[in-house]
Design a binder for these strands. Structure first.
Length: 448
DNA sequence: AAAAAAC
C-alpha cells in the first residue's frame, strides 16, 4: 500500500514524498479514500497514529478546487490547544506547498490583528481553538456560512476541557450541507451524542492505541519519597543515557521550580506550562526542538499530541492524576518506531493513581531497580572535582542482557570512597521519613 | 487535588 493508491493528486504526492513519507499509516490508508469521496468520518485514534495527515492530505485536494472569498473560510479545523492548532498549521504548510491555499491560525494568546487581516483577505482553511474563534465570530470578523468542511479533532479532550457547548454553537453556524470529520481517542457518551447530531452516515474507523502498548517504550515506576524526587531525577538524567527528555509535573508551580533547580545543577533545562504567554511557550518549544535545551519540564499542556522527534525519555515527576494523561505523556517518547524509556515517580500518596494507570494500560509497570542501593546520594555527595559526575550505568529494560559487570571497575573505585567519607560530611537531606524498601502496594499486581 | 482555553 502506498500513498499513490489512495487517490491523492500528483502535486500532493510529491509534497508527501519530499516530506519523507512513502507508506500511509493504517488510519491514513483507511480515512483518505472516504474523505476524498466527501463522506463524513469518525476516526477513533490517538495522536501518534498519523491522524493529522489523514485529514490534512485529503482536505488539500478537496480545497484545491474552488475559490476563496473574503471573511468566508471554506473549511475549519478545531483543536483543543494552541500548540496542537499550530502543529496542524505546520502540517498544512508542509503538505500544501504545491497548492495555492491560504490558511489562518486562530488561537488565543496572540494579537488578533494578523488573524483579522488574513480573514478579510479570504482563507481556504481555518485552524482554530474554540475560544478565539468564537471571539472573532462575535466581533463579526468571520462568516461561517461558506464552511463546507469541518474537522473536530481530539473531541474527547475538548469534552474534558468543557468545549462541547462551544463546539455545538460553532456547528450550528456552519451550513448543514457540509462534510464533517470527528477524531477522538475514546467515545464517551457526550461525544457519541455530538457525532449523532452533527455527522451524517459517517464512515467509522478505529485504529489501535499506539503509545502504552507500544513495545518500544520501556516503562518503569520509581518509588520515591516526595522530598527526594529531584535527587532521583538528577541521578536518572545522568545515568540512563538520556539524550532528550520531557519531565512532566502535575502543577505549573512544580514545573517552574523544577526547571530552575535543574538549571542550578547544570542541566540544560527549559519549561513549558500554561502560565507562560504564547510567544514564550513557542520559544521554549523551539529551544527544545533545536536542542538548545535537552530537558523540557512540562505541564500537561505538552502531554497530548506534541510531536518532537527523538525524545529518548519521559519522566513523570508526578504520577498523573488521570490515567489517560499517563498514556499521552508516555507517548511523547518512542515515536516513529524509535525506542524510548518512561519513568514514573510514585510516592505513597500515588498508590491509587498508579493502580488506575495499570488498569488502563493493562499491565503492571515494573519497579525500576537501581544498580546502587542509594543512587541519588551516591551522585549528590560526590565532590565536584575531577571525577565524572556519573554513577554506574543502568542499561535497558532487560536486565539479563545487561553486560553485567562492564562497569565493575568503576563500581569498585567508587564504593570505598563513599564509605571512607566521614558521616558528618554527608548530611542527610531533609526527609519525610519514607525512604525505605519498596512498599507492598508497588510490588503486588494492581490488577487483582 | 490540575491544566487547558477568550478578552
Amino acid at each position: 500500500m502506498s500513498f499513490a493508491d489512495l487517490g491523492l493528486s500528483d502535486e500532493l504526492l510529491q509534497a508527501v514524498e519530499s516530506a519523507g513519507y512513502t507508506e500511509p499509516t493504517p488510519i491514513q490508508a483507511q480515512a483518505i479514500p472516504p474523505v476524498l469521496m466527501m463522506k463524513d468520518l469518525i476516526g477513533i485514534a490517538q495522536t501518534g497514529t498519523g491522524k493529522t495527515a489523514s485529514f490534512v492530505l485529503p482536505m488539500i485536494d478537496i480545497l484545491a478546487h474552488g475559490r476563496r472569498r473574503a471573511l468566508m473560510p471554506r473549511s475549519l479545523i478545531l483543536e483543543p490547544t494552541r500548540e496542537l492548532a499550530a502543529q496542524v498549521a505546520e502540517n498544512f504548510e508542509k503538505y500544501g506547498k504545491n497548492h495555492d491555499l491560504k490558511m489562518a491560525l486562530l488561537i488565543g494568546g496572540v494579537q488578533m490583528g494578523d488573524q483579522v487581516k488574513a480573514l478579510s483577505e479570504g482563507v481556504d482553511v481555518l485552524i482554530a481553538t474554540p475560544g478565539r474563534l468564537m471571539d472573532l465570530f462575535e466581533r463579526g470578523k468571520i462568516l461561517l456560512t461558506g464552511c463546507e468542511l469541518l474537522v473536530i479533532d481530539e473531541a474527547d479532550r475538548m469534552l474534558d476541557m468543557g468545549f462541547i457547548p462551544d463546539i455545538e454553537s460553532i456547528c450550528a453556524k456552519l451550513p448543514t450541507n457540509r462534510q464533517t470529520m470527528l477524531f477522538s481517542a475514546t467515545m464517551p457518551p457526550p461525544i457519541k451524542k455530538l457525532s449523532d447530531r452533527f455527522l451524517s452516515n459517517p464512515k467509522y474507523i478505529e485504529v489501535a492505541r499506539p503509545a502504552t502498548t507500544n513495545i518500544n517504550i520501556a516503562q518503569y515506576k520509581v518509588p520515591v519519597s516526595p522530598r527526594k524526587k529531584r535527587e532521583v531525577l538528577r541521578h536518572l538524567l545522568r545515568t540512563d543515557d538520556v539524550s532528550t527528555a520531557i519531565v512532566f509535573c502535575n502543577r505549573k508551580t512544580t514545573v517552574r521550580e523544577l526547571a530552575k533547580s535543574l538549571k542550578k545543577h547544570g542541566f540544560a533545562a527549559g519549561e513549558i506550562h500554561g502560565d507562560m504567554d504564547q510567544p514564550a511557550r513557542i520559544a521554549e518549544l523551539e529551544r527544545f526542538k533545536d536542542g538548545q535545551v535537552n530537558i523540557l519540564c512540562a505541564s500537561d499542556v505538552a502531554a497530548r499530541g506534541l510531536d518532537v522527534k527523538g525524545v529518548s525519555h519521559v519522566f513523570n515527576f508526578d504520577t498523573p492524576w488521570h490515567p489517560d494523561d499517563y498514556v499521552h505523556r508516555v507517548g511523547r517518547t518512542g515515536r516513529g518506531g524509535a525506542s524510548g524509556r518512561a519513568f514514573t515517580f510514585v510516592t505513597p500518596d500515588d498508590a491509587e493513581a498508579v493502580q488506575n494507570v495499570e488498569k488502563l494500560t493493562g499491565g503492571e509497570i515494573p519497579v525500576f531497580e537501581f544498580a546502587d542501593e542509594q543512587p541519588a546520594e551516591a551522585v549528590e555527595e560526590k565532590p565536584k572535582g575531577k571525577r565524572p559526575q556519573r554513577a554506574k550505568k543502568v542499561e535497558g529494560a532487560d536486565r539479563a542482557e545487561r553486560a553485567p559487570r562492564k562497569e565493575t571497575t568503576e563500581m569498585r573505585s567508587e564504593e570505598p570512597r563513599r564509605e571512607r567519607r566521614p558521616r558528618r560530611s554527608e548530611p542527610e537531606p531533609a526527609d519525610d521519613g519514607w525512604n525505605g524498601p519498596v512498599p507492598e502496594f508497588l510490588k503486588v499486581s494492581a490488577l487483582a
